[in-house]
Simulated scan of single mutants.
Amino acid sequence: MDKKDKIKPKSANQTPDPQITDPAIPDGIQVTLDLQHPLFATVEYENGDRYVGEYSASDLDNRLMRNGVGKYVTFDGHLYSGHWKNNKLSGPICLHVWPLMNVHYKGEMLDGQYHGEGEYSDGKIHYFGRFCNGTMCGPGVLTDCLGGRWTAVQNRNNTLRFWLRS
Results as ranks from 00 to 15, higher is better:
Ala57Gly: 06
Leu110His: 12
Gly123Ser: 09
Met136Ile: 10
Leu89Arg: 06
Thr74Ile: 01
Leu142Pro: 06
Pro9Ala: 11
Arg66Glu: 01
Tyr80Arg: 06
Lys71Cys: 05
Asp49Lys: 01
His96Pro: 02
Thr135His: 11
Asp111Arg: 10
Val31Cys: 03
Ala24Pro: 02
Gln19Met: 11
Tyr72Pro: 01
Leu110Cys: 10
His126Met: 06
Ser81Arg: 11
Leu142Tyr: 08
Pro23Arg: 10
Arg149Trp: 02
Ser121Val: 03
Gly68Pro: 01
Asp76Leu: 04
Glu108Thr: 10
Asn67Arg: 00
Asn13Ser: 14
Trp150Phe: 15
Cys94Glu: 04
Lys124Thr: 14
Asn86Ala: 13
Cys94Ile: 03
Phe128Arg: 15
Arg156Thr: 12
Tyr114Lys: 13
Thr42Gly: 01
Gln154Asn: 13
Ser166Thr: 13
Gly77Tyr: 01
Tyr105Leu: 05
Phe40Lys: 04
Ser58Ile: 04
Trp150Ala: 05
Lys8Met: 12
Met109Val: 05
Lys8Asn: 13
Asp61Glu: 09
Phe162Arg: 05
Arg66Gln: 08
Trp150Val: 07
Pro99Asn: 07
Asn157Asp: 15
Glu44Val: 08
Pro38Phe: 04
Met136Ser: 06
Leu33Pro: 07
Glu117Ile: 15
Leu100Arg: 14
Gln14Phe: 15
Asp49Thr: 00
Ser121Tyr: 09
Cys145Arg: 13
Pro18Met: 02
Thr74Gln: 01
Ser11Ile: 04
Pro18Trp: 04
Met65Ile: 13
Arg50Ser: 07
Asn157Ile: 12
Arg161His: 12
Ala41Ile: 06
Thr151Ala: 12
Asp49Asn: 15
Val31Gly: 01
Lys10Ser: 11
Asp27His: 09
Thr159Lys: 13
Arg161Val: 14
Phe128Trp: 06
Thr74Ser: 10
Tyr105Glu: 03
Lys71Val: 05
Asn87Arg: 03
Ile20Ala: 01
Ile29Pro: 00
Met109Phe: 12
Leu79Thr: 14
Asp122Ala: 06
Ile7His: 10
Ala24His: 10
Asp144Val: 04
Leu79His: 07
Val97Pro: 02
Thr135Asp: 12
Glu119Ile: 10
Tyr80Thr: 02
Asn155Pro: 05
Leu160Cys: 08
Asp144Thr: 06
Glu119Cys: 11
Asp34Leu: 05
Val141Gln: 11
Glu119Trp: 10
Asp59Lys: 12
Ser121Lys: 11
Lys88His: 12
Ile20Trp: 02
Asp34Ala: 02
Asp144Pro: 03
His83Tyr: 07
Asn86Trp: 09
Asn155Arg: 14
Leu35Asn: 07
Ala12Met: 09
Ile20Tyr: 00
Gln19Gly: 08
His37Pro: 02
Asn102Met: 11
Leu79Ile: 15
Arg156Val: 12
Arg161Pro: 02
Gly118Ile: 13
Gly77Met: 02
Val141Asp: 09
Thr143Arg: 15
Val153Arg: 15
Gly70Arg: 03
Leu64Thr: 00
Ser81Thr: 04
Gly53Arg: 01
Leu164Ser: 07
Lys85Gly: 03
Val31Lys: 03
Gly77Glu: 03
His96Leu: 11
Lys71Thr: 09
Gly68Val: 00
Glu46Thr: 04
Phe75Arg: 13
Ser58Leu: 07
Phe75His: 14
Thr21Trp: 05
Lys3Gln: 12
Asp49Val: 01
Gln36Trp: 03
Thr74Pro: 03
Val153Leu: 12
Pro38Leu: 05
Pro99Cys: 06
Pro23Val: 10
Thr32Met: 07
Val69Met: 07
